[in-house]
Design a protein around this nucleic acid. Structure first.
Lengths: 377, 377
DNA sequence: CTGAAAGCGCTTACAG
DNA sequence: CTGAAAGCGCTTACAG
């Protein structure tokens, strides 16, 4: 029987062994360290934070350090955050962690953050932005910074003003409109790090046009984030340029099963309008299309070419391998993290900026695989 | 040019506009609310925390609520955590968020946590457990609870004792050995929620044996977590029972590319020993095998049957569809979250426990797909 | 039903 | 180079 360990709830504070002194019962405090080292708590604070340069004698530092080690002292972040007004943490807000794509972004962020800031991820329920109540809670933690990935406009408008904030993959947020004559703090532009999507999208549409497709369907995401809306607009613009007709009317959340259903519902109509290719807002949705195509006996790529966005790791092993617009998620994460550190006056230099010279290539690139390789016309 | 919004660093505390009063410059505090509502901060605290039942008059509650709304007051968590000794957050520690599998677990956890506890995810670098330094930081946040998924033994041993902790997918941690005669606090057993892996593993091995396989290779994970070690042991035991020979010697981190390389290196040897099937510790690694098989011109399933663990959403659309031992991640998350709430004296009842009666079915089940469907012998 | 006050554990000017 | 003290914004007994 799994999960049957009956150990009962363990109270947050373990009962103090009766033989010990009062302060040993809970976590050691700076006062405990000070007592043991024979100094003041102020000095302990200095040492614990490495701010001893020219302020604390080497001998004292050693004594305090020993005391810290022997007591296992760790600075209480709640108290520290309160006293300082800010905590050494960065909160990343992303709509959908189930999407493996975010793994790359997170990796990029942590690489650059190093141990300056502890990264914490906040997730709402599937694909949804955190509610204002949750945001209030998060800001209440007094994080030094906020990283917001793929926000919707509504979410941005409701974003609290407190902590330093860097937006990731938030097209539009960094372009304050053409005639932004400072109409008050209405729509604050914020620091944003975005992909350069056009090259990848153009390459995809060119590729489809070159393969002889004339009518292309689009399976949109229904999550309402700006970056996903932009994908669709760019595909439409490129289709226009190449004289392709774009048909849509279908969308789903970013899940395989949901996309399967959306495609099954849309396919008859698309088929009637002569669509021979479908571009999906995400690879995850493209997987759903592949699954549906099998059921419907639609052959890929012979009857229908399928493409997506994200180039997930598994897209190379789907049947057939999936053509996809690859997004450099790790680069996005690194760039955003560096931006945040800089905004906070912490030099990003040490932790990866140098080691990752390609950190700022945010260009989306097309990866062609068999799912679109069946020339026609 | 993406990401070129030059908005400059925004200091955490914006300089106070000279025309405003002191407290209006930063976030409103309980004192501000109290002043506006004409009450004491104590009352504000009571109202803000919903502890007014029989302690604050309806009229007062209304006045304070109005003041809170009009000021946009939100409780400062740092201060609250300090005063209370604990914060309303739960930290989930997982080795590898890039694995979409964790999306399910996270979803399960948040479903049950509701808004009692804000879930925050802490990630170390790829596939690694957080360092003791990071753990100290996390505990310094004074989270009400810790959820630790797929820990290694070493990590568990170093786990601090502070907050209420529930282990997920940590086999062994809940089974304090047969002769645990209380040899001191050496290896504290903890509350753990585990899968029942055996049914799924047995079904997989039975299936392979029934298909006529006699020699089965195992591509292990190199991450050193207990649960992954257990998978291998269970496969070995089942193989033994069915008279199959298990060959191994290959392992990789949980990434497609790494698994590809590991398989390419191991295949000649495995081929020599007559292996006709390979079981992978994770679906992600199985994807790598599928990719390598193409390169090496090994046909799946005709030359080689391939199976994995996790049954990721994309495993139904791989070429060929992947046979996998499915793990009920959401159920694991829900069960662990409920356990944590109970340990904290918060009743899990409201937020999903009732709506999800299947919450405790933690049985792993085999999903058979074409990657293993080629009878031989 | 309500408020004054102590205290949570730090950090940071400010004096020495 | 070091310490005493104020203060960060809450929460919680404790009096009324």
């Amino acid at each position: 029987m799994p999960g049957e360990a009956i150990e009962g709830p363990r109270p947050t504070q373990s009962r103090a062994p009766r033989t010990q002194t009062r302060s040993a019962a809970s976590r050691p405090t700076a006062a405990d360290v000070a007592a043991l080292a024979g100094t003041s708590v102020a000095t302990v604070s200095l040492v614990a934070n490495g701010k001893t340069k020219g302020r604390v004698g080497a001998e004292t530092v050693a004594r305090v350090t020993d005391a810290i080690d022997s007591l296992g002292y760790v600075v209480d972040h709640a108290a520290s955050a309160l006293a300082r007004g800010t905590a050494d943490i960065a909160v990343l807000i992303a709509p959908d962690l189930a999407n493996p794509y975010y793994g790359d972004v997170v990796r990029g962020v942590t690489e650059v953050l190093g141990d300056r800031l502890q990264l914490l991820l906040a997730v709402a329920s599937t694909g949804v932005q955190p509610s204002p109540a949750v945001m209030a809670r998060l800001v209440g933690l007094r994080p030094a910074g906020l990283l917001v990935d793929a926000p919707s406009q509504a979410f941005l408008a409701a974003l609290p003003d407190g902590p330093a904030t860097v937006l990731l993959d938030a097209p539009g947020a960094d372009a304050p409109g053409t005639d932004d004559t400072g109409a008050g703090g209405a729509a604050t532009p914020r620091d944003a790090v975005n992909y350069d999507l056009a090259p990848g999208v153009d390459a995809l549409v060119d590729h489809l046009a070159d393969q002889g497709h004339r009518v292309v369907a689009y399976l949109d995401s229904s999550t309402g984030t700006e970056t996903l809306a932009l994908r669709r607009r760019l595909v439409a613009a490129a289709a226009d340029r190449r004289g392709l007709r774009l048909v849509d009317g279908a969308s789903s959340v970013i899940e395989v099963a949901a996309a399967t259903h959306a495609f099954e519902a849309a396919w008859p109509g698309w088929d009637d309008s002569g669509a021979t290719a479908v571009v999906c807002a995400t690879d995850t949705q493209a997987y759903g299309v592949l699954a549906a195509a099998r059921t419907l006996d639609v052959r890929v790529p012979d009857d229908l070419a399928v493409a997506g966005f994200d180039d997930l790791p598994s897209s190379q092993v789907t049947a057939p391998g999936l053509t996809s617009v690859a997004l450099p998620g790790a680069a996005l994460g690194r760039t955003a993290a560096a931006r945040l550190l800089r905004a906070l006056g912490l030099d990003p230099e040490g932790a990866g900026a140098a080691e990752h010279p390609a950190a700022d290539d945010l260009t989306a690139r097309l990866v062609v695989r068999p799912s679109t390789l069946a020339p026609r016309g």
